[in-house]
Design a protein around this nucleic acid. Structure first.
Length: 735
DNA sequence: CGGATTTAACTTTTT
DNA sequence: GTTAAATCCG
């Protein structure tokens, strides 16, 4: 323990030893922030003799929390009673305990974003708004934004600025009512409801103030207004609040993170001791210089100067390529080269991108060359439809008042209870003031329900009832197993011989083993506990670096990680920075910080790529390189232009490029549908002989326009004349 | 009512 | 190119 402190630099050490009063640690990228935090907690326990039970440490991902816990355990031997967790899981736990005193159920369920949107949709329909005019997604996002800032429905409604705001206010109010009657909380509620409880009941606040006499917060720049108020309330009495953050790494503004929390911390806590960790231990001087020169362009930031005593290292490489295929190809090429020349392992590499959609091209490239990869993020396991179906059953068993989940499963697998019957049941339920689940028991009283439907509904009711009784008698693992068995899911998917069906089967099996795993691991396994745990999982939580695989993920996902070699792809204006951020300075600065985060993930080497053309579903054509590339100090950059690899083989206009396969003919399992690329290449002339996949050979009669919209008219040898968009036609020429 | 087929919408990042 | 929602038909 003492040794751990002595390894710290002077500033880090001071930050560790300042255990009393408010502390703000401004920790630059790679400055050993996690180390300071863990050594600090260990120091508090061992040197200052603070009981671990009085310390509460909060992070944003479960992974960060677990890492911190295990490091502390190594330092002090035990961390019994120490509270470390994500904001959401800590307060979910507190809510489970406190909710019954305030008119909520202990068995509340947690709604994720999809549930939230579904409920908003229902609410909007109830208010008579068409989903066309008011997309539930958008309204849900606006509601969430209000909630992040602790604005009530009444406040939204009191002076609506726009017609939309009026709808939002109404929907917000109805949405909160619906949540309450479903006994559900959304993510925002897990923070907001505790704030409300603490506000309204000082004695409860006091209880937690004295329970948690020391608060520590990681990634403080990502906190939103509500989270800040929660911290401020808890810290009000003892003022032992230590926050660690870096305003340059604030990349969650769109989710309500409020930079004022960090920029104005000293205003709210005037006696704050501030420590700046500016020595970077991660990256080479060149990488650091590049990153600093970039982020220096931001106006809204606390000035700081990161420095490093590491070697200069290689310059950052910039590659200009033709399109996303070329991009993937160059990434593959570089990886091979580095592995060969520098004896690197595949897990030394990360490919980072702005949007998940970009992963496909890179994936294809890696797969074709036989390099294995792990992809983090994208569609998460617990958000897959088949998984959410099973989870909906579990939610209803845990809390039958969750009508959203109930409606999801009442006719899955098919029971013959269709929309028409549901309408009747719901109307009757609303009129008689019963909830849906109890209505099912009294289905005979509902008018106009066919006998077959009624029988089926009773069967469903009995099924849920049975598991409600079972849930306290058997383990969650056994329960889920029996339930999945009884509703015949495994059989259902087994009969489905399609690829998707097999995938679903796999996923359901994986869910079963996840529940068993949870049952084994948890001290006090319960159905609600399991549901809560998975509701609060994040992408990165499931990331286990494999030794022989390249990592692919979004830049957001990469925060907090590091790799020897980092590729950042898609550095084009409109993609990174994303086009919609261009008009708003704050958003543009956030994009710049995001790129800063990407650069500072690298320890030794950075390769930046941009493509002159890129196919996305709604736009293609020519692109400009990202402004961020121009903002990096040129002295640490090396520019490389891609040589179009065109051999004496067939010239390809709009290509279906097979050169890729041929050059790297690693064993390729071809996908069922061969993905075609439609990149335009100029060079077509009138009178030229061309070959079309289905029409055969012909002659170019006419060429109109240029660029991506260029068209050509071809008279085929059988006399038929066709007009094509050049970039879609995939025409080939003779040698 | 259920299943199959067609259509539209979608892509920013996520606790 | 993928997926959920809308539409059609038995």
């Amino acid at each position: 323990m003492i040794a751990a402190i002595e390894k710290l630099n002077p500033e880090q050490r001071k930050a560790v030893e300042a255990t009393e009063g408010p502390v703000l640690i401004l920790a630059g990228a790679g400055s050993g922030k996690t180390r300071v935090l863990t050594v600090k907690i260990a120091y508090m326990i061992q040197e200052r003799r603070i009981p671990p039970g009085e310390i509460l440490a909060m992070t944003f991902t479960k992974k960060a929390a677990e890492e911190m816990r295990s490091r502390i355990r190594k330092l002090v031997g035990s961390e019994n009673g120490l509270w470390i967790g994500t904001f959401h899981s800590v307060f979910a736990k507190i809510l489970r305990r406190e909710a019954p005193h305030f008119g909520y159920s202990t068995d509340f369920v947690i709604y994720d974003k999809e549930d939230q949107e579904r409920l908003v949709k229902q609410v909007l329909e109830g208010l008579g708004h068409s989903p066309k005019q008011h997309p539930p997604r958008m309204i849900a996002a606006l509601i969430s934004r209000s909630k992040n800032s602790l604005i009530t429905p009444q406040e939204v409604l009191s002076h609506p600025q726009t017609p939309v705001e009026k709808v939002v206010g109404e929907a917000y109010a109805a949405y909160q009512d619906a949540l309450r009657s479903n006994q559900a909380f959304d993510f925002d509620d897990l923070i907001n409801v505790p704030v409300e409880i603490f506000r309204a009941h000082p004695s409860v606040l006091q209880k937690y103030q004295s329970r948690f006499r020391y608060l520590l917060v990681d990634e403080y720049q990502d906190t939103n207004r509500a989270q800040y108020l929660l911290l401020a309330a808890l810290a009000k009495a003892h003022r032992n609040l230590c926050v660690v953050g870096d305003d340059d790494q604030s990349i969650y503004g769109w989710r309500g993170a409020d930079l004022r929390n960090i920029l104005e911390f000293e205003k709210d806590f005037p006696e704050t001791a501030v420590f700046r960790l500016e020595q970077n231990y991660r990256s080479t001087k060149n990488i650091l210089k590049a990153a600093s020169s970039l982020v220096d362009k931001n106006v809204h930031r606390k000035k700081k100067t990161l420095w490093s005593d590491r070697e200069s290292g290689e310059p950052l490489e910039m590659l200009e390529v033709e399109d996303e295929l070329e991009e993937a190809h160059r990434v593959v090429e570089k990886i091979r080269d580095e592995v060969f020349r520098k004896k690197r392992n595949f897990n030394h590499f990360a490919v980072l991108y702005r949007t998940n959609a970009q992963s496909r091209a890179i994936e294809d490239g890696l797969r074709k060359s036989g390099i294995s990869y792990v992809i983090v993020g994208g569609v998460r396991f617990y958000e897959r439809k088949e998984i959410k179906d099973v989870l909906a059953y579990l939610k209803v068993v845990a809390n039958p008042r969750d009508t959203l989940s109930l409606k999801r499963i009442i006719n899955f697998p098919v029971r013959g209870i269709g929309d028409t019957s549901m309408q009747k049941i719901e109307t009757w339920a609303a009129r008689s003031g019963l909830d849906l689940f109890n209505t099912l028991e009294r289905i005979d009283e509902v008018p106009d329900i066919p006998a077959r439907v009624a029988k089926s509904a009773r069967g469903f009711h009995d099924l849920i009832r049975k598991y409600m009784t079972l849930k306290d008698a058997i383990s969650p693992g056994e329960l889920v197993h029996a339930l999945v068995d009884e509703i015949g899911l495994i059989r259902l998917y087994k009969d489905d011989t399609s690829i998707e069906g097999q995938g679903k089967l796999e996923n359901v099996r994986e869910l079963l083993s996840a529940v068993h795993e949870y049952t084994k691991q948890s001290e006090d396994p319960s159905l609600s506990g399991f549901l809560e745990e998975i509701a609060l999982l994040t992408d990165i939580d499931n990331y286990h670096p494999k030794s022989a695989a390249v990592t692919l993920m979004t830049v957001h996902c990469a925060k907090g990680l590091e790799f020897p070699v980092v590729f950042v792809v898609g550095l084009e204006e409109g993609l990174f920075p994303l086009s919609r951020t261009l008009e708003n300075l704050n958003e543009l600065e956030e994009e710049r910080r995001l790129f800063y985060v990407a650069l500072t993930r690298a320890k030794e080497k950075v390769v930046l790529l941009w493509a002159r053309t890129r196919n996305t579903y709604n736009s293609d054509g020519y692109r400009m390189s990202s402004r961020f590339l121009d903002e990096i100090d040129r002295s640490v950059m090396q520019f490389n232009r891609d040589e179009p690899r065109r051999s004496a083989r067939k010239a390809v206009f709009s290509r279906e490029d097979d050169s890729f396969d041929r050059e790297f003919d690693a064993p390729v399992e071809r996908r069922a549908s061969f993905r075609k690329s439609n990149t335009f290449r100029s060079g077509m002339v009138r009178g030229q002989r061309v070959e079309h996949e289905t029409f055969g050979w012909g002659q170019v009669e006419e060429i109109e326009g240029s660029g991506p919209r260029q068209t050509c008219t071809v008279r085929f040898d059988d006399g038929i004349e066709k007009k094509f968009l050049v970039r879609f036609a995939r025409l080939k020429t003779m040698e």
